[in-house]
Computed example of a mutant assay.
Amino acid sequence: MNTSPDLRPDLSLSFLITPDRFRTSLRDLPALPAAVQDIILTLGREDIGAAEVADHLSHDPALSAKTLRLANSSFYGMSRQVGSIPDAITILGLRTVRTMVLAAGMTERFQVAREAGFDLRAFWRHAVGAALVGQGLARELHMDTDIGFTVGLLHDIGRVALACMFPEEYAHVLMHQRTLDLLPIDAEHAALGTDHAAMGGLLAEHWHFSPVVVEAITHHHAPALHHGPGLVGLAHLADAFSHALGLSGQEDEMVPPTPPEVWGAMAPGAQASMRLFTQVEHEFDDICQALHV
């Protein structure tokens, strides 16, 4: 007689998370700062002016301070102190400051209930690593580096959203993941009937991100099926490389498999990869320290 414990997840209706249930629960998610929402709407726009961005930030002193701390981190190598948002825009450029605001605003918004068992610090450290990889890969592939940073930072945003809105259900996911040594996305499918990529796409839509960013977040675990050699593939590789570098600090970090066709089309060669990895590792601690993650 088989006496081993039943490790199958509880697929009761109370644990299943449908798109409608997720959308309904979005009201329980902490609102983004108004300045971050405004910045999101400007991503990809070339007609936005420095004065407009500075004005958005002037209404949020805490976010401005965190953005300036990031601007003055050794990552940017400034020879003098950056004292104001207009100075940061002048010295570093408007596009760079927009991604700073996004990173500063996102990393302080989410609070996860203790019962979820979710390691928020490890989550953001992995996300920062993926953002740096995404930025570097975009540079190698002659893609938009700001969008590369953005999709790297936010590719897994559905995980923290699920853990915030459904702490009991996500604790069940994490238990199932540890018990069967699964990738998070596989544990989510088994326990919730959905996954963080699909829910992250819904959240990105709710925040009015551009369709290409929504697509990259939604499909970063299935790049071969969704325009792999492009932003979806970039998000996938940023995720995989950040896991491979072990930047989250978690002992059980797993690297998701990359389809050969995506690897062949987008992965940099050995020399470029080593250059990228060295750069990311050099920049990583400074960015995390500035963002307090």
Rank of each mutant, 00 (worst) to 15 (best):
D10E: 13
D10F: 09
L16D: 04
P19Q: 06
P19R: 08
R23S: 14
D28N: 15
L29M: 09
L32A: 15
P33F: 02
D38L: 13
I40S: 02
L41E: 15
R45I: 04
E46P: 02
D47W: 08
A51T: 15
V53A: 00
A54H: 03
S58R: 12
P61A: 06
L63I: 11
S64H: 02
A65D: 12
T67S: 14
L70S: 03
A71D: 09
M78N: 14
M78V: 14
V82M: 13
V82T: 15
R95N: 08
T96K: 05
V97S: 01
M106P: 01
E108K: 13
R109L: 14
Q111E: 15
E115A: 11
L120Q: 11
W124A: 00
R125D: 07
L132V: 04
L137V: 05
L137W: 01
L141A: 08
H142K: 07
D144K: 01
G148N: 07
G148A: 04
F149H: 12
V151Q: 01
V151C: 05
G152W: 02
L153K: 03
L154I: 06
L154D: 04
D156T: 15
G158V: 00
G158M: 02
A161T: 03
L162M: 11
C164F: 02
E169Y: 02
L174S: 03
T179V: 13
I185Y: 13
I185R: 12
D186C: 07
A187S: 07
T194D: 11
M199P: 04
L203S: 06
A204I: 10
F209M: 15
V213E: 06
V214Y: 01
H219K: 08
P223S: 00
P223G: 06
H226E: 10
H227C: 10
G228W: 00
G228N: 00
P229K: 01
P229L: 04
L234G: 00
A235N: 05
A240H: 01
A240Y: 00
S242A: 15
L245Y: 05
L247F: 02
L247T: 00
G249N: 12
G249S: 07
G249I: 01
M254G: 13
M254K: 15
V255Y: 03
P260H: 05
E261N: 10
E261R: 05
V262M: 09
G264T: 05
A265Y: 02
M266F: 06
P268Y: 04
Q271G: 13
A272W: 06
S273N: 08
R275N: 07
R275V: 00
L276M: 03
F277D: 09
E283L: 13
F284K: 01
D285A: 15
I287G: 11
A290C: 01
A290I: 05
H292F: 07
V293K: 05
V293S: 09
V293N: 05
